[in-house]
Design a protein around this nucleic acid. Structure first.
Length: 113
DNA sequence: TCCTTGACCATTA
DNA sequence: ATAATGGCCAAGG
């Protein structure tokens, strides 16, 4: 069995800890894993370990958009999985101020008014 | 080694 | 809001 490099393990651990109904960007995951500026590696790791059971659908771009091209198979699947757990996806995008793992509380309160 | 390729990001126009 | 740009960095050829 191939051993998993520590950097990969750190990234996988962070992804696994994203709460249900919340989302995080590639960059944020990299930072939380102690690997700032390694956003691209997060995407790569997700691909490499796609066989594992991970909440990959909770990972989005920094602007809240789904990384896969609109109309692609993966895009549709990710959208469906997010909707399944109550995350609103509008036009291929999620409002991070509401569903972001580290969401902006001020913005959320503002929306309630 | 050097070069290319990305499930990326921030800035600028 | 969209697009181009330069930067980023590990993998693989």
């Amino acid at each position: 069995m191939a051993d998993i490099p520590p950097e990969h393990a750190a990234i996988l651990r962070v992804i696994h800890s994203i709460p249900r109904g919340r989302v995080a960007s590639y960059g944020e995951i990299a930072r939380r894993a102690g690997l700032p500026r390694h956003a691209r590696q997060v995407g790569r790791v997700l691909g490499v370990y796609s066989a594992l059971k991970l909440p990959w659908h909770r990972v989005l771009r920094s602007d809240g958009r789904i990384a896969f091209p609109k109309g692609s198979r993966s895009h549709r699947e990710q959208r469906a999985l997010l909707l399944d757990e109550g995350v609103i996806v509008r036009n291929g995008r999620v409002d991070l101020a509401i569903f972001g793992w580290q969401r902006d509380v001020d913005a959320q309160l503002w929306k309630l008014v």
